[in-house]
Amino acid sequence: MQTSFYTVATGEIAFEQFDNQTIILNAAKGSYYELSETANYIFDFIQKGLSNLQIVEVIATKFNIAVEEVYNNVQELLDTLIEEEVITAVSVSPAQTTDTQAAVLQMSSFQKPSIRIFNDLQSLLKLY
């Protein structure tokens, strides 16, 4: 397990967060995404400057789940977001302060984070 920090890519990425989901648009790829409630929290943790291991730690502690299980689930989501060029890995935390306890306070349960990837509108970006 290696510590990594992340930042949301700028320019062609836009997102809106709701109570139980996040909608992300990637204009460069013509893709868009729907994050589940747990993935929504993880995406929020990233923006607050938490590393992957900090995210795993606060979730595993709060919900008394094995670290390895949480790590696999969290890292799978982060790897997908990197692959989709929604986030990029950075060497230091992009946020000034990281209050890990406050970050996880609102999370009421942990379910495997999921992301729905939509590629059906890519043709709209094409020039004919």
Partner: peptide, 24 residues
């Protein structure tokens, strides 16, 4: 829910019109 509505209106509007990302 509102997220489903945004999923219904934003991608096709923004990709078709090539809007700024702030449109979202």
């Amino acid at each position: 829910d509102a997220g489903k509505i945004l999923l219904g209106i934003a991608p096709s509007t923004m990709f078709a019109l090539k809007t700024p990302m702030s449109y979202l």
